[in-house]
Nucleic acid binder design. Structure first.
Lengths: 228, 228
DNA sequence: CGGGTACTTGACAATGGTCAAGTGTGGTGG
DNA sequence: CCACCACACTTGACCATTGTCAAGTACCCG
C-alpha cells in the first residue's frame, strides 16, 4: 500500500485535504523496529512522535525495583509520544515494541508547523488527547478503587466487546503483560484466573478463553470485589 | 478587577489579542459555588468547561463502596472539564468545590468556534491537555509502583517546592482530602505521618509541618518504601 | 531434542483496609 | 461567654488482599 494511502487511514489525519496529506507524507520518516526494542525511554529528549502502522507498542513506567506498569498498548493507526511535542521536551514514560513493528515518525518542528496552519488537524489532535485523558482517568479508577479480580473482569468484558461481543475471546498479549497492564504480577493474575475458572465464570485454555457467566463477570467488574 | 483583566491572566488565554479576549469574555458565564457543592457528576452530559477564578475544586472518582480517589485539585487560573468538549459528550469524573469558588463557564459550541479560528488558542489547549496527561502518568506511577509512605514523601517534597523550597510548609487541604489524593484513607495516612514523625523525618502540628530530614524524605519518595 | 521463557502453585510476610472507640477543635446558638 | 455539636483526626485490634520467594511444569523455537 502506498504511503499516502496508509496516512489517509490514520484517524489523526482524517478530514485532511489531498494537499495536506501530501505535506504530512513529506515530513514523516518510515521506521521498522524488531520485537522487544526500546523506542524511547522516560525523560529522554523528544524530537517528535510516532504512529503505529503495523505491530504493537507498549507505553509503561518502571519502579525502582523493576516492577512495570503498562499505561497503554497501541496498535494500528494509533499515535503515541505526542505529549512532549506540546508540553516540554521529555517523554513521560517508556515505549517498547511487543512485536516487530512499522512506525511513522513525525518530527516535532515540522509537525507543529502543519498543525498551526490546519484547524482540523488541531481538532483531531485535541480529541485524541482527550480520549487519552479519559483512558487514564479510567485506569486510575481501576487501580485505586478496584481490586485485581474486578480489574480483570472489566478487562475481559472490554476485550470481548472489542472482539465483537462474543463469549469466545483470545488474549492479544501474554499473561505477563496483562498482569502489568492490570497493575499486578503474573502470580496473582494466575491465581485469580484459577479462582474465577473454578467458580465457573470462565473457561480458559492457553490464550483462548470462553465467558461462561457474563452476568457474574459484570457484577464482579462493577463491584470490584471477588466473593469467596 | 474587570472581567477582561481576569481572563487575560488565565494561562489558557495567554497570547490572545485584545479582540480575541473580548470574544472570550463575550461567551463566558460568571458563576459562584458554595463550599462542598457539586459542579458536575461523572457521566453527566457536558455543555462546556470551567476555569477557576477563586477557590478550589477537586476532580474525583468514587468507588461502589464510597471510597474516593482525587484525580486533581485545581485552583486559580486552572481549567477543568475540557475533555468532553473535544471527546464525546460526558464528563469522565466528578467535580466539587473544596471552598467557596468563583468559576467562569465556557459553553462548548461557542468555545469550539473560537478555537477553530485561533491557532494560538488551540496550541494553548494542546499544551494544557499535555500537562494533564503528564500529571496522570505520574499519578498512575505513584499509585501502582509506590507504597503509601513513598507517595506521601513525594507529595510533601512537591508541596515544599511549591511553597518556595523552605522546610516549613502548610497543607492547603485537610488530611482526609490528602489521603484521598494519595489513594488511601485517613487512618492509614495518620499512622504513616506518626511513623515518619517518630523517625524524625518531619515534625507536624495541625496543618503546619516542618521537614527535618529532607535527604531521608527524598530517599523515601524515590524508593517508594518505608524501612522499619 | 534441548533450552529458555511463560506460566502455575505453595508457603509466607506485610501492606493497608475495616471497624470501633476515643480525642480534640472550631463554630454556632443559647 | 460558655456549652455543645459536628467533624476532623487519631489509635487499637484485626484481617483480607496481594506481593515475595522458591520450586516445579508446560510449551514454543531453533
Amino acid at each position: 500500500m502506498g504511503i499516502i494511502e496508509l496516512v489517509s487511514k490514520i484517524p489523526l489525519f482524517h478530514g485532511l485535504s489531498r494537499e495536506q496529506l501530501d505535506e504530512v507524507v513529506n515530513i514523516l520518516i518510515d521506521q521498522t523496529f524488531e520485537r522487544g526494542q526500546t523506542i524511547f525511554s522516560e525523560d529522554e529528549e523528544a524530537s517528535g512522535f510516532f504512529v503505529v502502522i503495523t505491530g504493537q507498542v507498549k507505553i509503561f513506567k518502571v519502579s525502582h525495583e523493576g516492577k512495570e506498569q503498562i499505561l497503554h498498548i497501541f496498535g494500528h493507526g494509533e499515535s503515541f509520544g505526542e505529549v512532549p511535542v506540546f508540553g516540554g521536551g521529555r517523554f513521560p514514560a517508556n515505549a517498547e515494541t511487543l512485536a516487530k513493528s512499522r512506525l511513522f515518525f513525525f518530527p516535532r518542528a515540522a509537525f507543529l508547523k502543519l498543525i498551526k496552519k490546519d484547524p482540523s488537524l488541531a481538532m483531531n489532535m485535541l480529541s485524541e488527547l482527550s480520549r487519552r485523558l479519559r483512558h487514564f482517568a479510567h485506569l486510575i479508577e481501576e487501580l485505586s478503587l478496584k481490586e485485581v479480580p474486578g480489574r480483570l473482569a472489566a478487562y475481559l468484558l472490554y476485550l470481548s466487546e472489542r472482539q465483537g461481543g462474543k463469549n469466545e475471546l483470545e488474549l492479544d498479549i501474554t499473561k505477563g503483560q496483562l498482569a502489568s497492564l492490570l497493575g499486578t504480577i503474573p502470580e496473582t493474575l494466575s491465581r485469580i484466573l484459577g479462582k474465577i475458572s473454578s467458580q465457573g465464570l470462565i473457561k480458559m485454555q492457553g490464550r483462548k478463553l470462553r465467558i461462561l457467566g457474563r452476568k457474574a463477570l459484570e457484577d464482579l467488574a462493577e463491584s470490584g470485589k471477588l466473593l469467596l
